[in-house]
């Protein structure tokens, strides 16, 4: 009896050690279709490229080219009642994550709390709320200082949620978060291009051909799930348009130089994006259509 108690204590302590801090017990995903394709999908998710779609980078580019802030372009964070399935929740988590990045980069803190609240609710529904430090983020958002900390904790929370999902056989949800972030980032870029047609913005839009190809590879791993199948079908028209974008490369040798004590690597190899004049407006239109379709998927 005592030996049994000792064994149980050891098992309890060891089990507690292996787990990341969590408030809830994570069960298996009930969808049998997903679990069947899990082995392939986990491998695909392990190979997914990091930094595929960064809300910070796209928002920083918009700010850099002088695009005005546009609150009206963001998704409404106040109506979550119809977002009921895990797939919808994950996709919207990505969309709101991109919007949060945009708000943070433009330092529009008055709206940040609404998006933080939406993200908190969705992440809790998905049982990954333990990685989202809502209290600290809300405090930072209502304070004029510490923008760096606000951005760090926001982005880091998303990275942690993504890591957790990928390593806990829930890569399908990670793929949807990335897709949501990507489409919202592209939507903001294309909307702003209409207002501020800067060549750097056009180039960044054209480069999404590379991102979309990787994203579709990941999504296709889960196509046995009808939600993913619908998503892939919705993305087909924009893929066909991106197929018409040409990316060429100009070779060059990298060099390492020291500038003000900082080591700087200059690449000297260039990529060039060519989008035909009649294709770009079609991409802008199709992005708007796709994003609005995804909001109601």
């Amino acid at each position: 009896m005592h030996k049994l108690a000792i064994v149980l204590i050891i098992a309890f302590v060891l089990a507690g050690c292996g787990r990341k801090s969590s408030r809830t017990d994570f069960g298996e995903i009930s969808d049998s279709l997903l679990s069947e394709s899990m082995a392939i999908s986990q491998q695909a998710m392990a190979e997914i490229i990091d930094n595929l779609s960064s809300p910070v980078e796209i928002a920083a580019l918009l700010k850099k080219v002088g695009a005005p802030f546009s609150q009206g372009s963001l998704a409404n964070p106040n109506d979550l009642s119809r977002i009921t399935t895990e797939n919808q929740q994950a996709l919207h988590l990505g969309i709101y994550g991109a919007d949060l990045g945009y708000l943070n980069i433009y330092n529009k803190r008055t709206s940040v709390v609404d998006y933080l609240t939406a993200i908190k609710n969705l992440s809790e529904d998905l049982r990954i709320g333990q990685f989202f430090d809502f209290v600290t983020l809300k405090r930072l958002a209502t304070n004029d200082k510490n923008l760096d900390s606000l951005i760090f904790i926001s982005v880091h929370s998303f990275n942690q949620m993504d890591d957790y999902l990928r390593t806990n056989k829930r890569g399908n949800l990670s793929a949807l978060i990335i897709t949501g972030t990507w489409i919202e980032g592209l939507y903001l870029a294309t909307t702003m291009y209409n207002q501020k047609p800067h060549p750097d913005l056009a180039e960044r839009i054209g480069e999404q051909k590379i991102v979309l190809a990787d994203l579709l590879l990941v999504l296709k791993n889960y196509k046995r799930d009808p939600y993913f199948n619908s998503l892939i079908e919705l993305m087909e028209p924009i893929k066909k348009l991106f197929d018409q974008v040409t990316i060429t490369y100009e070779l060059g040798e990298p060099e390492m130089v020291e500038e003000n004590g900082m080591l700087v690597i200059k690449q000297n190899e260039k990529s060039h994006v060519e989008i035909k004049p009649d294709v770009l407006p079609k991409i802008l239109d199709e992005t708007k259509k796709l994003r609005n379709n995804l909001l109601s998927l």
Binding site: E207, I210, I247, Y249, G252, P254, M256, E259, M262, L263, V264, I265, K266, Q267, N268, E269, K270, S271, V273
Partner: peptide
């Protein structure tokens, strides 16, 4: 970049270690 070394925090030419480096990316 693929199999080509772009840069490192250890500069073999000078034998100096750096706490990091900046990478001015010109190719997506």
């Amino acid at each position: 970049d693929e199999n080509r070394l772009m840069g490192t925090t250890f500069n073999p030419a000078t034998g100096k270690d750096y706490p990091g480096f900046d990478f001015a990316c010109t190719k997506t």
